[in-house]
């Protein structure tokens, strides 16, 4: 690697990480400002721990993210399996295109179209009644299915077919070959897809704003409206907590992997 390339790499990582470093430092600032340092303190972490609206929004977001990721994993597994294993079948091209569509649909269009769907469904069949956690969950799941499908399909494409064939040669019916051979082999892809879906849901403000209703504000929605009113170190404290949790999770994961290897 040439010196110029290495230098550029360092500059890019500095660009990516400088704002995060800034967040962490100023979350410990004593003053109200996020620009002037006025001494170290934990007061914004204390404020965070007493901010009931923010805590409720976090719990709601965690619930929505977990349920929507699970829903997306169920549907995405079937779709990814079909695309990786069924060879040519009628409507394959259409299915592939439709599954990829949410990846390239702008968020505002996804949000608006999902909201209109829920409004029309409520008028026609009375479900889902009103907008709230349920509608946000369904909207997030509808986007995430595309990601799970992509990951599952990539994992299955061209691998493990010999194992499945061996199972079938030994008279396992197709569902048993799937349940005892394919499914366990898919677990890493499923975990990756689930985690990706969970993250997307935790991070989304646009689709949630369209599809949510009164009394069901997700964490990004609360942070977004707080940001419009002005940035406070409390949000930085929240960001630092998230960074810590993510970093701890990654460390645990790499320890587990090293242990397993």
């Amino acid at each position: 690697m040439s010196r110029a390339l290495a230098g550029w790499l360092v500059a890019c990582y500095a660009f990516l990480y400088a704002p995060i470093g800034f967040l962490i430092v100023f979350s410990f600032n004593d003053g109200r400002m996020v620009t002037v340092w006025s001494g170290a303190s934990m007061r914004w972490y204390v404020a965070l721990a007493h901010d009931q609206a923010l805590i409720d929004a976090t719990l709601l977001s965690l619930r929505i993210a977990a349920v929507s990721a699970t829903l997306a994993a169920l549907v995405g597994t079937l779709a990814g399996y079909a695309l990786a294993r069924f060879g040519r079948f009628r409507g394959r091209g259409a299915l592939e295109a439709a599954l990829a569509a949410p990846l390239v649909l702008p968020e505002v269009i996804t949000g608006l179209s999902m909201l209109l769907l829920f409004v029309v469904l409520e008028q026609l069949v009375g479900w889902p009644a009103g907008r709230g956690a349920t509608t946000v969950t369904l909207a997030h799941a509808s986007v995430s299915v595309a990601y799970v499908t992509m990951v599952v399909r990539a994992r299955l494409a061209g691998s493990f077919t010999t194992l499945e064939e061996a199972a079938m040669d030994l008279y396992a019916p197709p569902w048993q070959a799937f349940a005892f051979i394919t499914l366990p082999l898919m677990v890493p892809a499923l975990a990756a897809g689930w985690l990706l879906s969970f993250t997307l849901s935790m991070d989304d403000v646009v689709v949630a704003s369209f599809t949510s209703g009164p009394g069901a504000s997700t964490l990004p929605m609360v942070v977004f409206s707080a940001t419009r009113l002005g940035v406070t170190p409390e949000i930085y404290a929240l960001a630092t907590v998230i960074v810590t949790v993510v970093a701890a999770g990654l460390c645990a994961l790499s320890l587990v992997r090293r242990h397993a290897a």
Binding site: L16, Y17, A18, P19, I20, F22, L23, F26, V34, T35, T199, M202, D203, V205, P220, V223, F224, T227, V231, I235, Y236, L238, A239, I242, V243, V246
Partner: peptide
């Protein structure tokens, strides 16, 4: 950085 929250990073840029 993707896992640190999109709005959080935008918040950092506002401060910067």
């Amino acid at each position: 950085p993707f896992w640190t929250g999109f709005l959080m990073r935008i918040n950092a840029w506002i401060g910067l």
